[in-house]
Design a protein around this nucleic acid. Structure first.
Lengths: 210, 210, 210, 210
DNA sequence: ATCTAATCGAGACGGTACGTCCCGTCTTCTT
DNA sequence: AAGAAGACGGGACGTACCGTCTCGATTAGAT
């Protein structure tokens, strides 16, 4: 007689994902084994393999199941402030413990598992990109964005520097760093009469080109 | 005294690294085993473990040993053109077969192996960043760069979008895409009288030195 | 419920033991590796380690599983003849090819593996000793044995010389040699009027059954 | 610079053998490696391999080099007493710590290494047997031994039971046990008017009862 | 309410690779 | 010339997990 009777379906799915996150946080993704998840979750390996085709797939689902603070854009009318708000939230969730190591590991996994890469894009990156582009479109219509700015590049330009910090240099990703990146991006690298962007401050009456 | 551990030592080292790249290209990093490298290189596992503490460390060394086309900056006087040249070269080497999969896998490995992450930064990323910053400093002194631009962010802003494309969306990284990113970055996202940047065209005599 | 762990369990066990004996005979115990047994038996190493904790334990089980000619004592009424019969059978089985080398190796293993030593005694030596003592008791009651003879020493005195020949001098252990030893033991080393023991000949009507 | 300069020849030989015994006593023969002996003795592996062809050969030499209390027979005129004295000495040396485990291991090694078996016989067993037979011959001439006793069997019959106790049952080998064996052997197993053997007492005038 | 089919926990199984130990040979440098 | 040091190819160790596979016990829905 086992302690708990066999529970089925969604029940099992959910408890396996919860265990995956727990165990992943404790020992790290690299040392996480399906065997160990099964043991800790009181599930059989079959039950896991029935649902997920790989460790990466399991982790992806587990992370997405967190249903953490929804990463949705506010619209206060100030695009830079809104980006800042949203990116701060994303950074808080994904670039800090306890989930940063797992999120990073997931991206690591995507480097040699095309299925994980595809699923990650489909279920997380693209939706996030869509929201960003939508919000930026509104801003462009309001004149807060250079009309020449190529929105297709938005995600790469906005997120790229942050992923770089997260994945490559692996230095701490602070709010202050996010702000500096945003300021630099809005100002541009090119030479011009230095019109100090006001974006680092609370929403000022936007759109005042002379 | 030669400085090298022994002739046969260096010999073995080199042949093991060559085999690692070969085999890694054939079967992919994930399925690459130290056992298999040893077998193909005609070396014993100990000989490999004597030199490298992990598969990641071995791959890092192997990739760096390629001594491929040196990724050094030209200085034609036009910063955008020079960045373009240099980044095109980097993309050709690292974001295309045969090395892209291994380079991606290496970064993947860095996500759960701090030693690999540290070595990657120390031996590849930081030197590359230093060269970039040096070249940008020259450009700033020549007025080709916004004096307000924070050079500490340069690598993140310039490389981030490319790594994003390489690691996250995993879409093809073309020269054309690089150019678009560069243009967008120099123009900036912020609204302003659209002074078309000249960077896509041959170096214009921008701000002569006094 | 069958009592056996599963049909396939017993199957595997049996085929591994058979392979052990085969391979052991071919290449000798010293060069016998669990790795090789696994490979030849088409089993995984884990399957072997699940059942046996060491090479010695595996060999012991394999040898005992032979269920060769049962080494049981006859009782013809003539103790010396019966000992001779039984010891001849034991010698034929354990002191000659194909099993002698493995049996010797097993005893060799017992010299540095207490578990093997204990198991060897418990499962082979002691049972054999018990049978011997039982048969000797009957003989003593019939006056065929010196009443002063210490039965606790029986195994050591009867088997010792044979193990000495087998393990130490490593000369051939012939039936003739066994007979000479038996004669000498029954006669004793001490001086006395040489009453020729009849034991070297067919059972003479010594002490008729009542 | 090493602490001690390279010493040569016999010096090295002797220190390696000493280390072998030391280390063998500490960790047991099974876990004793030539690598470890070399390290502890401050010798190179070559130096060991130059002198000994196997671990067994090294151990044999090391044990024989002890030059312990010479196992030579006294001749007090009482054969049983002399055997007792000599065997007690042998047991004290070889069947007790610290050398028993190594001696047993050596015999174990002889079971799968014919070279060790041959050397063990040639250099230890046979010489010992010769001494025994010589002493027994004297005793026979003095009428202390059955004239029918086959001296070729002497070693097997006298030593066999002790080796049995040492190698097979692996129970403690006490002086008392030795005495009981001697008594039983001299008395013989066969039935006869129970003439209590006097062997446990000082040499009584042997020679048969009329 | 019973039966049947799906699902589960448990864990054996063949397999691959791990990282380690030690083998016996070899090369190099030291004394 | 002899030795210390230790690199080297090789073989095996015992372990960890992989993904697949029985095997009964449990459970839910169809009868």
């Amino acid at each position: 007689m086992t302690g708990t009777p066999h529970r089925r379906g969604a029940d099992r799915t959910e408890s396996i994902m919860r265990t995956t996150l727990e165990l992943g946080q404790e020992i790290g993704y690299a040392r996480l084994s399906i065997e160990a998840v099964a043991a800790r979750a009181g599930a059989s390996k079959q039950t896991i393999y029935r649902r997920w085709s790989s460790k990466g797939a399991l982790l992806l689902d587990s992370l997405l199941s967190m249903n953490g603070p929804r990463l949705d854009y506010p619209d206060t009318g100030d695009i830079v402030a809104d980006l800042r708000t949203q990116i701060h939230a994303a950074v808080d969730l994904l670039a800090r413990p306890p989930f940063a190591p797992l999120f990073k590991a997931l991206i690591g996994e995507a480097q040699h598992d095309p299925q994980v890469a595809a699923a990650l894009n489909e279920r997380f990156i693209t939706p996030q990109a869509d929201k960003t582009v939508t919000r930026l479109k509104t801003a462009r219509d309001q004149g807060q964005l250079s009309p020449a700015f190529d929105l297709d590049l938005a995600m790469a330009i906005l997120s790229g520097p942050l992923y770089f910090q997260l994945l490559i240099t692996q230095e701490q990703l602070t709010h202050e760093y996010v702000d500096r990146i945003l300021d630099a991006l809005f100002a541009g690298m090119g030479p011009r009469p230095h019109t100090p962007t006001s974006h680092a401050r609370p929403p000022s009456p936007s759109v005042p080109p002379a």
